[in-house]
Design a protein around this nucleic acid. Structure first.
Lengths: 240, 240
DNA sequence: CCTCATTGGAACATTTACAGACCATTGACG
DNA sequence: CGTCAATGGTCTGTAAATGTTCCAATGAGG
């Protein structure tokens, strides 16, 4: 019996890189996913270092790097901090084509991963008994997306999708969804935001929320799958 | 707009502990999952260190610890190595209760994660067009479990479940499923293997395979969810 | 019975990461 | 207009982890 695939899956690297690299990656994720919106600041260094479980020195190196790269602006003194100054630039179709090609095999991998993990999260949430607070949060996030302007759309759309995973209460699941989304985030950002797409997405978002509130996992799956398949098909098109 | 929950999900600790602790944990999981069956040996230190992305010194400390704890026997010279001498002892209900209590909040987290990710994987696979080879592999893994003896049951059951994720072709998804299963493996091992459960599981396994082969994601979800919910409910019972 | 490739064992210098203490700056608020 | 709390900036010593090199043991195969 071959057990090499499982061996590879289990005996994989213990750590993705050194502390500095992992920290940069983590902060970049928070920035690109809009967890900390442009103009806002990261938590204070001392607090953030504790959150991330690293030393302040290492954190500062990562912040320095991101400041040099143009993502953060650091200001001293009380009411200072590391402010997000990054804003997603609209990419050219040629750039998107190149980005898709660069991912190669990784694109299908990432899309499948995202599909599995977001569908799973929605179903888990639909199968759970929700508190009033959970229902309210979900509806509020939906309203946020619907009421957003062009500048905020991506960020609030991301917030909506991630909140589904977060509401399950599983940090592992939330982390997986955040990871999945980040892997395709730069591609999604390169797709122009058309009113048609927004309207279409709004209908699908509402279907997802309804299925979850009603407690229908099967409907939740169909709604999420349909929603994600739309963008996935668009991206896959660039591979042909 | 509150964004603290998303902030917690993304800005969480970069590393679970020091390299030594993480390595011990990783090896222990490989052993308890049966990825390296009793009597077999781990890969050579030099190779394993590369696989795990750590130094040989750190790996050796972890191996030393596991040898002292009675999981491994280390032999020198050519054809030597670190041999697995651990055999799953039927755990006392008290031990299981303690183990469940120790996981605390992490248990619900892990169970939800596993549910989401395994359901998602099965649905992705069911939605895909499968090659003959994929179908054969799936059926073979199912047959392996059905034809297994008490000693091999856990290991082959794990192999069956993981092969679903592997067959999607997404390494990210396979990794997530392996991770999910590893987190509850030691609890599952503590549950006695009853013929009733095996028979019940066999029916459910067959339902999962059928749903995937037929290409029915909804049925795949129901089958996997029902299968996982059985053990999840059992474990949750120890929290009450 | 010897050889030797392969394996674990041990020591070294170097790099990375950490913890903690202290300094410098800022701006809201009294 | 000064205070001072909260923030980033800097330094030092310590511990952890690494990379490298060499040594020691083993046993299948010649």
């Amino acid at each position: 019996m071959e057990n090499s695939p499982r061996l590879d899956a289990v005996l994989r690297p213990v750590r993705a890189g050194n502390a500095f690299e992992e920290t940069v990656e983590r902060l970049l994720r928070a920035i690109k996913l809009g967890v900390v919106p442009p103009g806002d600041r990261l938590p204070a260094e001392r607090e953030l270092a504790v959150r991330l479980g690293i030393s302040r020195v290492t954190l500062r190196e990562a912040i320095k790097y991101l400041a040099d790269a143009g993502y953060l602006q650091v200001r001293r003194g009380r009411y200072g901090g590391a402010f997000v100054i990054y804003r997603e630039a609209g990419a050219e179709p040629a750039d998107l084509r190149k980005a898709v090609a660069d991912m190669g095999q990784g694109l299908a991998d990432a899309l499948d991963f995202r599909m599995a993990v977001e569908c799973g999260a929605a179903q888990v949430l639909a199968a759970a008994t929700l508190t009033t607070h959970q229902r309210d949060t979900l509806c509020r996030r939906l309203a946020d997306v619907d009421g957003s302007g062009p500048d905020d759309y991506r960020r609030l759309d991301t917030a909506f999708h991630l909140s589904i995973a977060e509401l399950t209460g599983s940090t592992l699941l939330a982390g997986a969804c955040a990871d999945a989304r980040l892997r395709v985030a730069h591609l999604l950002n390169a797709i122009p935001i058309l009113q048609t797409n927004i309207d279409h997405a709004a209908v699908q978002h509402r279907a997802i929320v309804t299925a979850i509130l009603v407690g229908d996992p099967a409907a939740a799956y169909r709604a999420v799958a349909e929603h994600l398949e739309a963008t996935a098909a668009l991206l896959r098109g660039f591979l042909a």
